[in-house]
Amino acid sequence: MNIFGYAQQFFDAPGQWSGADGIPTRLLEHVQYSALALLIALVIALPVGLVTGHTGRSGNALAVLATAARALPSFGLLVLLTILMGLGLTPVMVPLVALAVPPILVTTYEAMRGVDPSLVDAARGIGLPWWRVLGQVELPVALPLILSGIRSGAIQIVSTATIAAYVSFGGLGRYIVDGLSQVNYAKVVGGAVLVAALALATLGFFWLLGRVLVSPGVRRSR
């Protein structure tokens, strides 16, 4: 049997669409935890990225921080924290957040730095106070890039939340991890298909978000 056969077997299985181990429950878990992690990462990274990008200071420090954070093995961190702290939300959230902060932070910083300085000059010269320059000029212009950074963070969170099933966490990764240990390849492949689909849905969501939030004047001039 090939992967398509396995996948079909998985999705056709009775009871698959309800209950504690049903697809809707697992999907909801995955989305909830991913959203929570993304939210925490945004709260940390976005203000720092916006302000440092606006002032143009600490760029080198951010680059070093980002490289260091990228070198942190998230899966290793997940296992280590679970051993140290026991099962729980914190050992899962820390690696997920640590994973998403660098792309959001660095892209936001770069996006803000990339805003045409003459635009900022004009905005200041017209008499906009700094928070309006940031919020009404720099942010809307930098938004496409910032969104791409958030998207990249979200994708990595969704991907790594899958692995979190290894430390007895819920979500779609459960199917893969359980299937592997039960040597049930239909379950493994089914889980992988669901995870991939969720990742693509995340891409689609951010594409839509861009259509809604980004001004056509900025979108087309790129």
Binding site: D116, S118, P129, V141, V218
Partner: peptide, 30 residues
């Protein structure tokens, strides 16, 4: 400082128009 700047029109080399705003909204900024 910002009241001062609003009392002075400011025009720069590449116009510095806000790319995310229409012509009308650019003019209506101040």
């Amino acid at each position: 400082v910002n009241a001062l700047r609003r009392s002075m029109g400011y025009v720069i080399q590449h116009a510095g128009l806000f790319p995310h705003r229409t012509v009308m909204d650019n003019i209506a900024t101040v």
